[in-house]
């Protein structure tokens, strides 16, 4: 494992953002739109319920959920879209005839993903504070283990998607854009797990993000930090990440055997 090769791939994505106004705008555009829509929706619901007395809690639930969901989404995109950038540029072959190993490549994608998450998170938190005087850090330092778990789940989905794109080519590209949303209904992002029908509640027990969002609401409503939720989320994430890495390396091996590595992007 060589740091200079990982930093080379990280640098490649920094250069990309330096030259792409659309990619830079995209970091701000979606969080801003989401915050505007959901911020006003929460204010309206609060007004309907009890003359606005619980407006701060509605804001905390919706905006907190929105910003945390964005962490999961961006960490997934940070892996799969960064991988797709190489496919679109038809540069994949040049990378894999260099000494870059698949492990180093994957770590570089994780670092790119982390960088994008941190930038987008800081922008979202700042916008929420400027637009609604909402301070995300009311959750306190608990935000850190929450973020870690969401990033882990985002990476798991991102690596899974990348494995499929490796094996099945650009026809699997659609997964990079939509697959995270498949998990949203059972992640209990904006509502508690208890509102889900029975079978979906069972399913939610296997979704790490569901524990994070339940935990966030527990802190906001009861000021209780549910350690057991975090342990469950972390354990599930570890299992899924291990399985998905196994799947990814297997796909890479298969693709190499079939001689498809040179054909990615064609």
């Amino acid at each position: 494992m060589k740091a200079h090769r990982i930093s080379a791939m990280f640098l490649r994505h920094i250069y990309l953002y330096r030259h792409s106004l659309t990619r830079l705008i995209e970091i701000v555009y979606w969080p801003l739109l989401d915050l505007l829509v959901w911020g006003f929706v929460s204010l309206y619901i609060a007004r309907l319920s009890d003359e606005g007395a619980s407006a701060p809690k509605f804001l905390a639930i919706f905006l907190g959920a929105l910003i945390l969901w964005d962490i999961l989404f961006r960490s997934q995109q940070g892996i799969s879209v960064s991988f797709l950038e190489e496919v679109w540029a038809r540069n994949f072959l040049n990378l894999f005839v260099s000494p870059l190993t698949i492990n180093e490549y994957l770590i570089s994608l994780m670092l790119v993903s982390l960088f994008k998450v941190v930038v987008a998170f800081l922008i979202s938190a700042l916008l929420a504070w400027v637009l609604y005087s909402f301070n995300l850090f009311i959750i306190g330092l608990y935000i850190i283990p929450f973020m870690v778990n969401l990033i882990m789940m985002g990476w798991t989905i991102g690596i899974l998607t990348t494995g499929f794109i490796l094996r099945f080519g650009q026809q699997a590209e659609v997964l990079a854009w939509g697959i995270a949303f498949l998990f949203q209904p059972v992640s209990a992002v904006f509502y508690p797990v208890s509102v889900l029908p029975g079978f979906l509640q069972t399913l939610a027990q296997f979704i790490p993000a569901a524990y994070v969002f339940e935990g966030m609401r527990s802190i906001i409503f009861n000021q209780i930090f549910p350690v057991d939720h975090l342990i469950k989320a972390f354990s599930l994430n570890l299992i899924y990440l291990t399985l998905v890495l196994f799947f990814f390396f297997r796909m890479f091996k298969k693709v190499r055997e079939k001689g498809l590595l040179a054909k990615i992007g064609e």
């Binding site: 090769r5 791939m9 250069y15 990309l16 030259h19 540029a89 038809r90 072959l93 040049n94 870059l100």
Partner: peptide
Amino acid sequence: VAMPYSLTLRESLMVFARLYG
């Protein structure tokens, strides 16, 4: 085989220079 199309020529070479140490 193409090179990263959004990067400048010099930047592309810099990425590969780092990859090869």
